[in-house]
Design a protein around this nucleic acid. Structure first.
Length: 476
RNA sequence: CGGGGCGUAGCGCAGUCUGGUUAGCGCACCUGCCUUGGGAGCAGGGGGUCGGAGGUUCAAAUCCUCUCGCCCCGACCA
């Protein structure tokens, strides 16, 4: 291989970087901590946007846009919030060549500026709920950065809703988490565990935080989406009250929720292999590549005419690339499209033309299979559907294989240290026990799964009563 | 901020210790021929303020001084 990807078992993090760079998903920018998202990478983000945006709108949400710059005084209004975010904020101090009277934060998230506006817009219960989402960039200054996973500037969507009652906000936060889970599994083919964050891990300024957690191929956890019930914290900070049906003034109830370009990193670390990216069909903007093979002009003409017919047939339903470049040999093209993760490759040479068929290769399996030209659209459609399904199943098997049930702390440490993955253990809900585990092992509580079994037990640290198991793992 | 390393073609590097024609190699790129079922071959070609500034010297990528930038390792985070 001329273009090398470091194999996963040699150096997982170099493998990741190699895949991102070689598949042309992103590149390093002149500004440290920032990245350029290249067309191949942005195409993935667009697919994420399109599908999530549709799902948000189907549940009554609308899009809007709030400013990038936030007055410092706004950030300071919610104590926990400013404390949580201040260390990672970039601040504008000069504008128009002059020192600003009030410094402006480049948004690390938009709760404060949005709630300053909600104050203007909300008077009565009739104004509620407000279900606004925005697609935007945010900035959180980072020292140790990794493409897609942790960059100072990243793209995301942030939903900010306002409600008349606690219960409504709670339902909203859970509804969104459900959407995230559905999207992650059905589109990205990433199995996730939905649950509630512990107090220590929740969002700065939230009442409850919920998350979906995925397991990467190195068995580390990655938070793939979060949703917060913010209670009345921001309403109180920004003095946002509404008059209820009884004529009484109440503070508004809030949620916020988001997923980011980090999902692209999750997609890579869930499915890609030593040959490069593997895209689930539903996320691939281009699902099929045809590589024609020929010797001499005569064959070239024949093969290309045939390949074009196939392209046209498949083009009714899918986006097809016909790679007829003359300067590269087929082997080179195979490798290149594999690198970019195109789900299905069709190889068409003189032998296939003679047999009225072609060779089909599924990117995740890499097995060659001869298929007839008759019914190629149905064959490929079926293959793509199976591929989508099996990618999720395989990832789920992997996740289950590395999910351990552990009741003894010695074994816990050993498992986290040697095996990695998710460890399900009892925990008494005391933050001190949680902190001790983090100090000892670097593992954190990923979440308290919604679907956990009711099972009385004893905290793995202190032995106190526990209502059920929580998920521990080392995380990105 | 503390410890280790590195700046030479788009990328990866050699050359620096021991100063000396025109600064070299691999990949990539361009042209042509030839090839095409798993990353071909041959020939020719383009591309460099040797990170920057100052100094020593007949002569500096090489020696000296200063400076800038980057990467790796230790406290927080979608």
């Amino acid at each position: 291989m001329a273009e090398k990807i470091t194999p996963r078992n040699v150096d997982y993090s170099r493998w990741y970087t190699d895949v991102v760079l070689q598949a042309k998903l992103a590149d390093y920018s002149p500004v440290k901590g920032a990245m350029v998202i290249r067309p191949n990478g942005y195409a993935i983000w667009e697919m994420i946007q399109q599908n999530l945006d549709r799902m948000f709108k189907e549940t009554g949400h609308v899009n809007a846009y709030f400013p990038l710059l936030i007055p410092e005084s706004f950030m300071r209004k919610e104590a926990e919030h400013v404390e949580g975010f201040s260390p990672e904020c970039a601040i504008v101090t000069i504008g128009g060549g002059q020192e600003l009277e009030e410094r402006l934060y480049i948004r690390p998230t938009s709760e404060t500026i949005i709630w300053s506006m909600y104050k203007k817009w909300i008077m009565s219960y009739r104004d509620l709920p407000i279900l606004i989402n925005q697609w935007a960039n945010v900035m959180r200054w980072e020292l140790r950065t990794r493409l897609f996973l942790r960059t100072s500037e990243f793209l995301w969507q942030e939903g900010h809703t306002a409600h008349a009652a606690y219960q409504e906000a709670e339902e909203e936060a859970l509804k969104i988490l459900k959407i995230y889970k559905t999207f992650a599994e059905e589109y990205l083919a990433i199995p996730v565990i939905a649950g509630k964050k512990s107090e220590a891990e929740k969002f700065a300024g939230a009442l409850h935080t919920y998350s979906i957690e995925a397991m990467m191929q190195d068995r580390k956890a990655l938070q793939a989406g979060t949703s917060h019930n913010l209670g009345q914290n921001f309403a109180k900070a920004f003095d946002v009250k509404f008059q209820d049906k009884d004529g009484k003034l109440q503070y508004v109830w809030a949620t916020s929720w988001g997923v980011s370009t980090r999902l692209v990193g999750a997609l890579i670390m869930t499915h890609a292999d030593d040959n490069g990216l593997v895209l689930p069909p539903k996320i691939a903007q281009r699902q099929i590549v045809i590589v024609p093979i020929w010797r001499g002009e005569e064959e070239k003409k024949q093969v290309l005419a045939y390949a074009n017919e196939v392209k046209e047939t498949l083009g009714k339903e899918f986006t097809v690339i016909l790679d007829d470049r003359d300067q590269y040999k087929p082997g080179y093209k195979f490798a290149e499209w594999e690198l970019q993760g195109i789900p299905v490759r069709l190889e068409i040479g003189p032998k296939d033309v003679a047999k009225n068929g072609m060779v089909m290769v599924r990117r995740d399996l890499m097995k060659k299979e001869f298929i007839p030209k008759n019914g190629v659209l149905e064959t490929v459609r079926g293959t793509l559907e199976r591929m989508q399904k099996e990618m999720l199943e395989n990832a789920r098997k992997f996740q289950q294989e590395y999910t351990h049930i552990v009741d003894d702390y010695k074994e816990f440490k050993k498992t986290i240290e040697e095996e990695g993955g998710f460890v399900k253990s009892h925990w008494c809900a005391n933050p001190e026990c949680e902190a001790k585990i983090k100090d000892d092992t670097k593992a954190t509580i990923r979440n308290i799964p919604f679907d956990r079994e009711e099972e009385k037990g004893k905290c793995i640290i202190c032995g106190s009563e526990s209502e059920g198991r929580v998920i521990f793992a080392k995380a990105y």
